[in-house]
Amino acid sequence: MNNQQIAEDIVIKFGENAHSFEEPWGLLTFTTNRQHIISLLEYLKQHETFRFNFLTDLTGIHLPDNQGAEFGVIYHLHSLENNVRIRIKVFLSKDDIHIPTATTVWPTANWMERESYDFFGILFDAHPNLIRILNIEDMDYFPLRKEYALEDATREDKIDALFGR
């Protein structure tokens, strides 16, 4: 079982709903959409040869310049039997940051989704308890978004031109 076989199988099953296949550092990565993400996760989990039975990680990313797909949700799955990892991405528009919850597939997605909500404001529909997890409850912004730039207090004197940029 290699990345090629997995990719072919997914393309046969999901057609153009799974696209942008690539292999950065040997890790099969592809993109899908929010309508198909849960069925895709379930399919990969139940698949009799692939057996992607372990949700390693779920996190978000903010790409403000990516028009119409500003937010990403990134799933890392691991097939413990075959020792293969894959990465699945779903991109969402900033005007409609809704994605179905993966807690129905793995209970462990619960806190990971809460964390992504807490930091990026990604709304996981039908999540059992979508509230902030690490930040205080009455915080009114989502701190890991790129519009909240970290101040670099020590480098005010630094003029880009002097450093060739």
């Binding site: 902030r132 997890i133 690490l134 930040n135 205080i136 701190p143 890991l144 909240y148 970290l150 670099d152």
Partner: peptide, 14 residues
């Protein structure tokens, strides 16, 4: 949880 949250992921971006 989150009593000693120190926003490492944010700090790391800088």
């Amino acid at each position: 949880i989150g009593y000693i949250h120190r926003a490492f992921e944010k700090i790391a971006e800088r």
